[in-house]
Nucleic acid binder design. Structure first.
Lengths: 132, 132
DNA sequence: CTGTATCCAGGGGGATACTG
DNA sequence: CAGTATCCCCCTGGATACAG
């Protein structure tokens, strides 16, 4: 506790490449989730109804199978989504939000609201900044 | 509207490396903010009071000058923080939240709350998943 | 003190081909 | 259909040195 007051309290579990030390800081965990470029998209895509692998890929639009698989694994590991395999002729796999995953949609909605309300201000700020 | 329903509606402005097309989607903008690994940390560090460059670096703890500068520029460009230069003997620069930046703290707090409430569940899910 | 410039390693992530 | 495996490019971001 000699240094890095804010950093250690909120995020820092290690400089960057060190063993994650599972969950030193809650915020750090959430950030690694939210910052993942595809996670929110997938959670939102699952909000209305469970979806299968290829349905998800279509819904998101421009995600590769590789990234979709990886992100789904991460979300499953974090308990945000469930994965059910149907041993049909061509195998089908359905993903759905867990209660935990669904509970995350609330704060995410808060973020979306803020984004929609202030998007114009941000764009204006950028234009002004760049236009100097 | 032929494909990528969710993706285009929420995020996709380009595969990844293409010109950002300023602000196609609000959520995408917010994500690029939140996902930036240092932005939230800096906003939170500025919540209580304006701070100078080196004070911010100390507060965050493990951020390099390079990344601190870059993140501050991005936040300034987005109108989230202000930058005031004092032409003193050794120059001093003070950063502060703008109204826009301050308004972002609310949804961020929602995220923090969710994180604190469900951190245990996430850790448990991970342990269970890994322990298989 | 507050940056900017350069160098460079590591990893994120796309494309493609293959498997069960 | 639902992945896995491989290749590989490029960007992120740390370290260091330099400038105003």
């Amino acid at each position: 506790m000699t240094k890095a007051p804010l950093g250690n309290l909120l995020f820092a579990d290690a400089p960057m490449g060190a063993p994650p030390a599972p969950g030193l800081c809650p915020i750090r965990d959430v950030l690694s989730l939210v910052g993942q470029k595809w996670t929110l998209l997938i959670l939102i895509a699952l909000e209305a109804e469970p979806r299968r692998f290829s349905a998800l890929q279509r819904a998101v639009g421009d995600i590769s199978k590789r990234m979709l698989t990886q992100t789904l694994r991460d979300l499953e590991r974090d308990g945000m989504i469930s994965r059910e395999v149907f041993p049909t002729k061509p195998p089908a796999v359905e993903y759905a939000l867990t209660d935990l995953g669904r509970s995350a949609l609330a704060p995410i909605a808060g973020l979306k609201d803020w984004a929609n309300r202030h998007h114009g201000a941000i764009k204006a700020a950028r234009t002004a900044f760049d236009g100097v």
